[in-house]
């Protein structure tokens, strides 16, 4: 079943060259366009101006990045813990799985635009509503990945373990959990890309500080350069989280990289 989960694209500097080129050329074209057209920086600031503003406002941006990072990590940690614990419960109790799964699916259909203000209304402007919203958004892909991953376990391996006298718990620990890991990392990669965006949205709806507040205030004072500066930081945060999951995957799924030799 492993072929259902794509392998992490291999490293190698050569493979990164096209990506870097396309990103760099996008910014170059953008810069050239802004300079030649003379368009107002109040409508479309050049990348160089965004960069200048980031340097000028670095202390201010840093102060607002920290709350976002904090909320993202806390929310993600909460979501990861719940997804893992719940996936184990669901795996051992299929009845509960059938009872609860529809609720989880419905939780994913709720529009964030509607839910975020309510959560802020109920839990205030502090950290709690952000953590909850991040958890709500990121928890489902990880839970589904884990539950599907357990189900993907090779029946013959489980029969073998039972023939050895293994208990249900041993079968889970020795076969089902490791079988789910490739699926889990596929889910984790999806979740992690949602996490920062969800935090920023929650801040946008109501917070005292954070990148979402920077974007809100900058937009209201006609400062697209600062909006874009916040966007750059949020992208960077997501990329860092993504890289961390890739690193973790390499550590946990080392056996998949080793495969296929000889």
């Amino acid at each position: 079943m492993q072929h259902l989960v794509p392998r992490r694209p291999g490293g190698g500097l050569a493979r990164g060259v096209p990506a870097v080129l396309s990103v760099v050329s996008t910014f170059v074209i953008w810069e050239i366009y802004v300079r030649l057209s003379g368009i107002s920086p109040l409508v479309l600031p050049a990348p160089s101006r965004v960069l200048d503003q980031m340097v000028l406002n670095s202390a201010f941006l840093w102060d607002n990045t920290l709350p976002t990072v904090k909320a993202t990590l806390a929310g993600f940690a909460l979501s990861l813990t719940i997804a893992f614990a719940l996936s184990i419960v669901l795996d051992f109790m299929p009845r509960i799985r059938r009872a609860l799964f529809p609720i989880f699916v419905v939780s994913q259909t709720l529009p964030l635009v509607a839910i975020a203000p309510l959560v802020v209304l109920w839990f205030g402007f502090e950290l709690t509503p952000k953590i909850l919203l991040v958890a709500l958004v990121t928890f489902f892909p990880m839970l589904v990945a884990l539950v599907d991953g357990y189900e993907s376990t090779d029946e013959e391996i489980q029969a073998l373990l039972r023939s050895m006298g293994a208990t249900r718990a041993t079968v889970f620990r020795a076969a089902r959990l490791p079988s789910a890991m490739p699926y889990f990392f596929a889910g984790l990669r999806i979740s992690v890309t949602y996490a920062v965006v969800a935090t920023i949205f929650a801040e946008y709806v109501g917070a005292r500080a954070g990148l979402g507040i920077v974007i809100l205030n900058a937009k209201n004072s006609f400062r697209p350069d600062l909006v874009l500066a916040a966007v750059v930081i949020s992208s960077a945060l997501t990329l860092i989280l993504f890289a961390l999951t890739a690193l973790l995957q390499k550590l946990v799924l080392g056996w998949r990289e080793a495969g296929g030799g000889q």
Partner: peptide, 9 residues
């Protein structure tokens, strides 16, 4: 078992 059922990990 029929296939080797070795755990790939």
């Amino acid at each position: 078992p029929q296939r080797d059922a070795l755990m790939p990990w």
